[in-house]
Nucleic acid binder design. Structure first.
Lengths: 247, 247
DNA sequence: CGTCATCTGTGTACATCGTATCCGGACTTG
DNA sequence: CAAGTCCGGATACGATGTACACAGATGACG
């Protein structure tokens, strides 16, 4: 039981996470800002102008507050990002529990995909924020719960959940990377991007060093159908879970 | 054939990627720097002190060059990052082609895992760099080639490759996030991190809102065996590919 | 009801970042 | 040897995250 040894001392108070700090209900908060406002505004900025546009100054300005005023609510920019992540994970309801595990995981996967597409900056940030924001734990909890009736041990259940989540974030992350590239180059449609990149693609492939890749460029006809690719990959992953774990 | 229409004009020269630019063999480079040096040094800094430590000033200093001197070789920091990514993708040989596709993909997956663990900053950067660096294309090409004898169309082959790669980067990305958290908190062993986080974990779970997650915390006994988790997840993914695609 | 301690929000200041611009000097080329 | 090209350097600017000190308002307490 490693979760109850040397801990619980008051000294841990200093190092408490945001979530811990903002739930202490004492101390009458006669505040003009709320953490929800901060999170929502930061998310709005990131959605509209990208994650780089979320600076403490811009955030404070948009909230009608001096820059340093934010630091009363937040320990630093990392906290802001953690609030943002948690906010969007909580924006839509929890993944609904379907009768069978497969439908539940599938629904959660498509839901996560939508979430990332709506907030593309999530992929830039997912590596730097702690994995313990409340809404993220809640989602994980729901998915774990949907597997509890199966004959799997706790470790395996977690692997199932993280495997699906990893597939989703990786796949959608690639799509998002393309979107960002398009935005940076100022093109709107995928074909325009291809036209713009045609020269360097020709250069790369013209060498004949990458024959299999070249085959894909020439023969692939669903390069733009990201939903099709996502669905095929996802069903593979789900099939694999069912096959290997015998469920 | 979208890769040969309106392109090839000279005006594209201006927008050429770094890779294109540095392959023009003319112009006797009487240079004191090489792109390999720049990439290797930047990688070294990132490996030792993290990606944030890679600034143009530090990089130039370590190369014994004035800051702005770098801009003769590189259009900006984004180029440096692209060079870094390509450098590490090329550091070890290409994934070796095993007799059967499954062994090939498995080897590539474990190889990519090792690569990311050796250069953890890759996960912070993978979203922002273009997907067209030569060594990355080369790797993809090898994997696509290993699937060519199978009865799959080009689109499906690519889905197979990206599905495996997505699983790997997502799963290892989570591990790396934990590592970074440990480094930031200044602890060396996983148990120490757990001790440090025990309080906020207790707080999070004590509410009883996340029973399934709590079950995992209590019953999971392989939380530290990231290789075990990786292997199980990977075999699930491979099983799924075999099952769904009938190979 | 007055006094004081405490918390809130503001302004200033600093180190560091990426990079635009200009310049001197060394090299290749005729 | 002359001329032109291009490397490397120095300076400068705007923007960033945040440490610090201070003004004002609010609550508790006599």
């Amino acid at each position: 039981m490693p979760e109850k040894d040397q801990a619980g001392n008051g000294e841990a108070e200093e190092y408490a996470s945001i979530w811990q700090r903002l739930e202490r209900p004492a101390k009458p908060p006669r505040t003009t800002l709320t953490h929800e406002q901060i999170a929502a505004t930061a998310v709005a900025i990131a959605d509209e102008e990208g994650l780089d546009a979320v600076s403490m100054r811009r955030l404070a300005e948009r909230l009608g507050v001096a820059t340093m005023g934010l630091y009363r609510y937040v320990r630093g920019k990392d906290d802001v990002i953690e609030l943002m992540v948690d906010a969007i994970y909580g924006e839509e309801g929890m993944p609904e529990t379907a009768p069978d595990w497969r439908a539940t995981l599938r629904g959660a996967a498509w839901g996560l995909r939508g979430l990332i597409l709506r907030h593309p900056w999530l992929v830039q940030v997912t590596a730097s924020s702690g994995p313990l924001t409340p809404n993220l734990v809640a989602r994980t909890d729901r998915l774990l719960a949907s597997l509890e009736s199966l004959d799997l041990d706790a470790d395996t259940r977690m692997v199932v959940v993280t495997t699906v989540a990893s597939f989703v974030s990786g796949t959608v992350g690639a799509d998002v990377g393309l979107d960002r590239l398009m935005r940076r180059e100022g093109v709107a449609r995928m074909d325009d991007l291809r036209a713009l990149y045609a020269s360097r693609m020709m250069w790369l492939l013209g060498s004949g060093r990458y024959p299999a890749f070249e085959n894909y460029i020439r023969q692939g006809v669903r390069k733009d159908e990201s939903e099709w690719r996502f669905e095929l990959g996802l069903e593979c992953v789900l099939d694999g879970i069912a096959a290997r774990l015998g469920i």
